[in-house]
Amino acid sequence: MRDHLDELEAQSVYIIREAFKKFEKLGMLWSIGKDSSVMLWLVRKAFMGHIPFPMLHVDTKYKIPEMIEFRDNLAKEWGFELIVETNWDVYNAKKTFPEGNATRIECCSALKKDALQSLISKNDFDAVFAGIRRDEEGTRAKERYFSPRNTKFQWDFKDQPPELWDQYKTDFAPGTHIRVHPLLHWTELNIWEYIEREKIPVVPVYFSGQGKCPPDERYRSLGCEPCTSRVKGEAKNASEILVQLKQSNIAERSTRAQDQEAEDAFEQLRAQGYM
């Protein structure tokens, strides 16, 4: 082991390989953000450059445009299967927050959570990877690497399986599925250190002056354009982001409006199947 990043990588690769061995129908939720980029990179590490299952994207149609461009380019360049799902009913009926016809939480619930559920059930996935991390937010700090969802996609957070000694929950009843979280033990800082070290491509708007970002603003976390705000500060590359992160004391998801709603609104969203 050369350093701590190698340890994080080895653990994630182990988890990814374990899921690949254990689950027949497997996909990876690819939100196109920095964590997903790292996760996809780790897949290639695990399988010697190959990407042996599809990337799944839940497209709300409100994403920051650079994300979609990045998604389509990378899929072409790296040659992986991409499955995109959109909740067209709700989107076309304009029952969304940006249209003024839904609260943020209702909007997330329909365009993300419901679309994700239909993506999983349509394709009969036994397991999907999701790039969440424990340091992001309180309920995620309590997650497992292999986290079961019942037939209604719900997360029974009051009764989670024990997880010890790198033995994971790979046995599951029919109709249920497993969320696999290979990045659970990484921090935001680790993610950027790794992106810098490995030179992993990320959506350019993480950096100031790119896309619609003014020279002194950038995105810290990527989501739907109407509900994601930029942070102040100049950072033109990963190493400059690292400097700022070290000095900052502000929670990463503070720029994501849906997290700041009523105290347990986000918890409910997650219990119902959101990432």
């Binding site: 937010e137 309180g138 309920t139 700090a141 309590k142 957070f157 989670q160 921090t187 347990d264």
Partner: peptide, 18 residues
């Protein structure tokens, strides 16, 4: 972090923080 943990003032599940 869970609402039910706060309501009952009891830790249900393990959590990690840096």
């Amino acid at each position: 972090a869970f609402k039910s943990e706060k309501d009952q003032n009891i830790t249900i599940d393990t959590a990690q923080i840096w």
